[in-house]
Amino acid sequence: MSEPPVGHLLDAGLLGEPVAAGRQGTAEYVLEAIDLRKRYGHNEVLRGVTFGVHRGDVKAVLGPSGSGKSTMLRCLALLEPVDAGEVRLEGRRIGVRESGGRLVSLPERVLAKERSEIGMVFQRFNLFPHLTALGNVMIGLTEVRGRSKADAREIAQTMIARVGLAERASFYLGELSGGQQQRVAIARALVMNPKVMLFDEPTSALDPELVGEVLAVMEELAREGMTMVVVTHEVGFAKRVADRVIMMDGGAIIEDAPPAEFFGNPQHERTRKFLEAVH
């Protein structure tokens, strides 16, 4: 089945101004991680992760499984609290507030608001099975943004068409292929008009022939200037699309370079070995 073309994903006319647009452009990075640390029991998963993503940049994150990539993404999306370190969105520290000279985690209700500014796409799609494709894209608009059903339906319908799934809007996820499900999941995150999109191995759970259609949507997003952090095993995607590539190992970033440098002349022995293994 040939897929309709995708395009015109970021549309201020459709999605409105980005949330809290006033703060735009005042900080060097849209998203910044400063010395993130996280441990589960004795297992130190993140050992001081620091990096920043400029507006409109795509950061690809490579690394062996267990290197802390997914945990890092979840911490950035405020789905997991960090033990130490800062997450900054447009220069503003998020996830915590100061109380009596100490930093405390925000209550879940306030965290929810901050999360809505960050889009997250999961390896296993995590679509809601009780809703149609359209319903999945609408739910954030109605339940988080407070849009009316009619408004939400219109926006969601347009967005679903733009990821090439207009014909499938009324289907439930059991009736969609993996690639279609992931495109719905991307549309679900996009209609929230996030400042940054985080992708956690978005193509790893897909059959090889379905990877292309998802990468096409992501490449279009990158072209239109979305700020993205993409944890991936797709070396080709990282080479083509990323502005910088990060190598993670043992809970730390061991290399952070533009793709030409990263793939052409990796500085770290571990990176070289990893690239040999995945090629």
Binding site: A77, E108, A112, M120, E143, V144, R188, M192
Partner: peptide, 22 residues
């Protein structure tokens, strides 16, 4: 699946909505 709760939270739903809607 734990991913359901995760996805709902990632969208920015407060806990009560996560429960009632998802």
């Amino acid at each position: 699946d734990e991913g359901q709760r995760l996805a709902a939270r990632a969208l920015g739903m407060p806990p009560s909505r996560v429960f009632t809607k998802v």
